[in-house]
């Protein structure tokens, strides 16, 4: 990081150009979210009578309080708030458990080699290519048989098991770059599977664990299909409530309040990215994904 010899070879005008290009791109990347934020401050009528994209005429800050605690989905007029907790109740445990299991599995596959490890790793990794629409009906049968249909626990189970495809992939690829010498030393000291994991591997892991947590958190938080199929009314995740706000056919969609709800629902993932982002890069720099 200290020796950035490549950039030193850049002439001054080159660096200026780089600044212009990268900041222009940055602004362009912001536009879609900016449109949502601006709409969240416009009234429904203003949007219905004008255009979808525009500057607020009257700043409708009340959209936010309405989105948070007032609007109604069917008879329950609680706003987004309880649904945010539902999402958290699924996302947080599923993220933590799937990350830990993925870390142990990745460690076992990469450093503790065992018979059939390549095969099982290949199979688990192939799972990332299996679209979740295809898994919907099989999961219904599984949830019925284990008695977890219409429970948040059922969703946690699904996201944990499915999530292991990604978490195992990420962690295994990271642990592969841990020198075998370290492992040998540990083994000579007589350290077992768990001792080695906790003493040597885990302290080296924060970067990749953060990457994995960010990935899992955003995917589970933003998931809709399972969330709406495997829950009932008041247990629904926040994505379902968001779409519930989008009165589909017979009404003017409430774009103002809807946009405010979108911003609120996106806050947790945005914050995770903002705070985690720093570590995300640090994690990757340490050779995370190879």
């Amino acid at each position: 990081m200290l020796e950035r010899a490549t950039s030193d070879t850049m002439p001054a005008w080159g660096r200026l150009l780089a600044h212009v290009v990268v900041w222009a791109l940055g602004l362009a990347f912001l536009v879609p979210f900016l449109v949502v934020v601006l709409n969240s401050l416009r009234t429904a009528q203003e949007i219905a009578q004008g255009s979808m994209i525009g500057w607020p005429e009257n700043w409708a800050f009340l959209n936010y309080s309405e989105a948070w605690s007032e609007f109604c989905v069917a008879q329950t007029c609680t706003g987004l708030q309880p649904f945010m907790w539902n999402s958290a109740a699924v996302t947080i445990p599923a993220t933590i458990v799937s990350t830990l299991l993925g870390a142990v599995a990745g460690y076992a596959i990469s450093l503790w080699r065992f018979r059939g490890d390549t095969w099982i790793f290949g199979l688990v990794t192939l799972g990332i290519f299996l679209p979740q629409q295809v898994r919907l009906i099989p999961w219904t049968f599984v949830l019925r048989d284990i008695g977890l249909i219409n429970t948040l626990t059922g969703l946690v189970v699904i996201h944990t098991i499915q999530g292991m495809s990604f978490t195992t992939l990420f962690c295994r690829n990271y642990y592969v770059s841990i020198p075998q010498d370290l492992m040998k030393a540990a083994r000579i000291d007589g350290a077992g599977f768990f001792r080695t994991f906790f003493r040597i591997v885990l302290p080296l892991s924060p970067p990749i664990l953060i990457v994995t947590v960010i990935w899992q958190f955003t995917h589970i938080w933003n998931e809709f299909l399972y969330g709406v199929t495997f829950t009932n009314g008041s247990q629904q995740p926040v994505t379902a409530a968001l779409i519930g706000l989008n009165a589909a056919i017979a009404d003017v969609p409430q774009y103002g309040v809807q946009s405010a709800a979108v911003v609120l629902a996106a806050l947790p993932t945005l914050l995770v990215y903002l705070f985690g982002g720093k570590y995300f890069l640090r994690g990757l720099t340490a050779g995370a994904v190879k």
Partner: peptide
């Protein structure tokens, strides 16, 4: 800038 380029990954396409 890094946060700006990364944020689209955090927001669901159902929205954006």
């Amino acid at each position: 800038l890094r946060s700006i380029f990364l944020y689209p990954m955090a927001v669901s396409f159902v929205v954006t």
